[in-house]
C-alpha cells in the first residue's frame, strides 16, 4: 500500500511540473519561488526540530555499549565503545557519523532446516548505506559549481576525480553510477526481505522514490536530454545573490529535477530524513558512560516532602515513652 502511494506521489509531483511549466508557463514559480520557499522551510524546519529535541531532558546516561565499562584499574576498559571521557565520546560519534558503526553491527536472524534459529553478520545494509550517503555528499558538493563564481578549486578537484575515467562526453561521473545503484539496492532490500517489507511504510518508500527520481532526472539531464547549463547557472547564481532571473530555453527536465529537490527540502524537516541532525543527538551514542562515577540528577525531580525519623519521634515521643518503646532522645 505504502509503496504504491509513494510511487504515485512522486509521479504526481512530476506531473505538477509538466502542468505548471509546460502548460501554464509558471517558470518563475518553479524556478524561483518554490526553491526559495523550500530552502527556508528546510533551514527553519531543521532548526525548529533540533531545538525541540534540545528541550527534552536525558536524565540518565543510557549505556548501550559494545565494550567494557571503566571500573577497577585492573580491568581493561574499552575507551571508544564504552567511553568515559568526552574524547572517547567524540571518537565514538565520529565512527558513528562518518562510518555508520551501528549499521556495521547489523545482524540477521533466519530459520535454518526447521526450528534452528541462526544469527549471522550482514554488512550489505552498511555497505549500501555508506555508498549511498557518501555519493550523495559528493554529488551535493559537485553541485556547488552552480553556486560560486569563480568556482573554488576544491569543487573542481572533486569533479575531476569523480570523472576520472573520462568515459564519454559529458564525462561520466562514477558517483552517479554508484548513487543510482545504492538507492536501487536500498529500495530492493525493503521489497525483497519479508521482515523489512513488513515494517516498511509510505514514509520509508517515499524518500527512496523521491531521491531515486532526483538522481534519475539528473542523469537524464546530464547525459541524455541535455539542457542549457549556462542558463541554469545564471538561474542559480541569481538565487544565491537574491537577484533571481529565469533564463529562457531551459529544458523541462531541469524544472522537474529542481522541483523534486525542492520537495525533498520541504519534506526533510518533517520526516525521518531528520536523522541527519538526529544522529548527533543520539543519547546512546553521545553520552559518556559515567553513571557510577558521577551524580546525574533527574532534571524533572521535584522537591519531595520527607518526614524523618527524628521528626516522627518528636511528634510521638510522649506516646512512645508511655507505651514503653525505646526513644533516641529523651
Amino acid at each position: 500500500m505504502g509503496i504504491i502511494f509513494s510511487f504515485f506521489a512522486v509521479i504526481a509531483l512530476i506531473v505538477i511540473v509538466f502542468i505548471g511549466v509546460q502548460g501554464a508557463n509558471l517558470h518563475y514559480l518553479f524556478g524561483v519561488v518554490i526553491p526559495y520557499a523550500a530552502f527556508f522551510i528546510f533551514l527553519l524546519g531543521v532548526i525548529y526540530r533540533v531545538l525541540q529535541w534540545g528541550r527534552i531532558p536525558v536524565p540518565f546516561r543510557i549505556p548501550t555499549t559494545a565494550g567494557q565499562q571503566k571500573s577497577h584499574p585492573w580491568i581493561k576498559t574499552n575507551p571508544i565503545d564504552n567511553p568515559f571521557t568526552a574524547t572517547g565520546v567524540f571518537i565514538r560519534m565520529a565512527f558513528e557519523v562518518l562510518l555508520f558503526r551501528s549499521l556495521f553491527r547489523n545482524t540477521k536472524a533466519e530459520l535454518r532446516d526447521g526450528p534452528i534459529l541462526s544469527y549471522g553478520s550482514t554488512k550489505w545494509l552498511w555497505l549500501g548505506g555508506l555508498a549511498f550517503h557518501y555519493t550523495f555528499l559528493i554529488i551535493l558538493t559537485r553541485h556547488l559549481r552552480f553556486f560560486f563564481e569563480p568556482i573554488p578549486g576544491v569543487i573542481k578537484i572533486i569533479e575531476s576525480l569523480d570523472g576520472f575515467f573520462q568515459v564519454g562526453a559529458p564525462v561520466l561521473y562514477l558517483t552517479d553510477l554508484i548513487f543510482i545503484a545504492a538507492v536501487t539496492f536500498l529500495f530492493l532490500r525493503r521489497v525483497v526481505i519479508p521482515q523489512v517489507r513488513y515494517i516498511s511504510l509510505a514514509q520509508d518508500y517515499f524518500p527512496l522514490f523521491l531521491i531515486f527520481s532526483i538522481g534519475l532526472t539528473g542523469v537524464l539531464m546530464r547525459y541524455f536530454l541535455k539542457t542549457d547549463v549556462v542558463g541554469i547557472k545564471e538561474l542559480t547564481m541569481g538565487l544565491v545573490t537574491f537577484k533571481p532571473v529565469v533564463p529562457k530555453d531551459i529544458n523541462i527536465i531541469f524544472y522537474i529535477h529542481l522541483f523534486l529537490v525542492s520537495t525533498l527540502f520541504i519534506y526533510f524537516p518533517m520526516s525521518k530524513l531528520m536523522h541527519m541532525a538526529g544522529v548527533f543527538l543520539s543519547p546512546t551514542r553521545n553520552l559518556a558512560n559515567n553513571n557510577r562515577a558521577e551524580m546525574h540528577v533527574n532534571p524533572w525531580n521535584y522537591p519531595v516532602k520527607v518526614h524523618t525519623y527524628e521528626e516522627y519521634e518528636n511528634d510521638f515521643r510522649d506516646k512512645m515513652k508511655a507505651a514503653g518503646l525505646p526513644v533516641e532522645k529523651e
Binding site: F147, F148, E149, P150, E234, T241, F242, K243
Partner: peptide, 14 residues
C-alpha cells in the same frame, strides 16, 4: 556559504 561567498563574478555572464 553559497549566499555569502557567491564570488565576485556572481553576476557575470559568459
Amino acid at each position: 556559504l553559497p549566499f555569502v561567498f557567491s564570488g565576485k563574478g556572481a553576476s557575470a555572464k559568459p
